[in-house]
């Protein structure tokens, strides 16, 4: 029971990380109509910048700031240099151009930092653990990640639903041409949304950096899961991204935690282990296929 609860929290923590990535990706998708495979690269940029500064100065918070600035700048450079030319293109060109961006980002990172993973520790204040239930101590840092993720979700809710910028974002997601026709500075809005998405991806990277190993290719692994979240939630819907991210985060964590052991009761050890891990990795994709069969446009899709 305690183990189950702990895994649920781990799932929640993975879920909010996915949400931080998916929120930006779904907005970029919904408003500009661009498939950005390189979103995971911005996550990597955030993680690397933060870890490097944290290792050099010993300050997690300095790293946090650097990571955010670095990913934000990288995002704006990508938008101005590449994305801007892709808005009018078809999905195929977008997939290829951003696939090329992944290669460029990954290799540049190898050139600067090498192939060795960077390891950082959690900040002093958050390094202990809190006994949230009798007999269940849980790392403070992971609770902090969950709190930050939920705070961002609430902040985004207000930004999108209660502000003028948010209104434009919503309008852009449901009818791009109309917003442009009404005389809104759509280029500025695009850059701002892309920058915001990059910032959130960077934040996810910074948050994850003490928990996962910071290495080249870390973005490629999580970006596929993020795409699954965006597609299940419905392209352009931040609410959908939130629901799907939390649900998938928990589902994926549960499978990985319990499936191999369950299989071991009916099969020999090593094979059960391998099969369990394999099926756990397939879980989210299976989920996406099932959701799309029932609702081809995702759970919370707008008219698009």
């Amino acid at each position: 029971m305690i183990l189950l609860f702990e895994q649920l929290l781990n799932g929640l923590q993975y879920g909010v990380t996915l949400f931080l990535l998916a929120a930006g990706l779904t907005l970029i998708f919904g408003i500009m109509g661009v498939i950005n495979l390189a979103h995971g690269a911005l996550y990597m940029v955030g993680a690397f910048a933060a870890s490097w500064v944290a290792i050099q100065t010993g300050s997690f918070w300095g790293g946090l700031l650097t990571g955010l600035v670095a990913s934000g700048i990288a995002g704006i450079v990508v938008e101005l240099g590449v994305m801007r030319r892709l808005y009018a293109r078809d999905h195929l060109d977008q997939v290829l151009a951003t696939f090329a961006l992944i290669l460029i980002f990954n290799q540049t990172t190898v050139l600067i930092f090498g192939r060795q993973p960077l390891f950082t520790s959690t900040p002093e204040v958050l390094s202990g653990s809190i006994e949230i239930l009798p007999g269940l101590p849980y790392p403070t840092y992971r609770l902090f990640v969950i709190a930050v993720g939920l705070a961002v979700a609430i902040g985004l809710y207000f930004l999108i639903n209660k502000t003028r910028v948010g209104m434009l974002v919503r309008a852009g997601a449901s009818n791009r041409q109309m917003v442009r026709a009404l005389g809104v500075n759509i280029q500025g809005l695009y850059t701002a949304v892309f920058g915001l998405g990059a910032l959130l991806a960077g934040l996810a990277g910074v948050m994850a950096s003490p928990i996962v190993s910071v290495q080249v290719g870390m973005g490629d692994e999580i970006i596929l899961a993020t795409f699954v979240v965006v597609v299940i939630g419905g392209v352009g819907s931040v609410k959908g991204a939130f629901v799907a991210a939390i649900a998938l985060g928990m589902f994926d964590t549960m499978l990985r935690a319990f499936l191999p052991a369950t299989l071991q009761q009916v099969m020999p050890g090593p094979e059960a282990q391998a099969l369990g891990v394999g099926i756990s990795s397939m879980g989210i994709y299976l989920m996406m296929a099932l959701v799309l069969l029932v609702r081809p446009r995702g759970l919370f899709a707008g008219r698009g």
Partner: peptide, 15 residues
């Protein structure tokens, strides 16, 4: 179709 088709074919390949 569209984006969903790209992603669902990717999903099957991953499986």
């Amino acid at each position: 179709g569209g984006v969903q088709f790209i992603m669902i074919t990717l999903a099957f390949a991953q499986m």
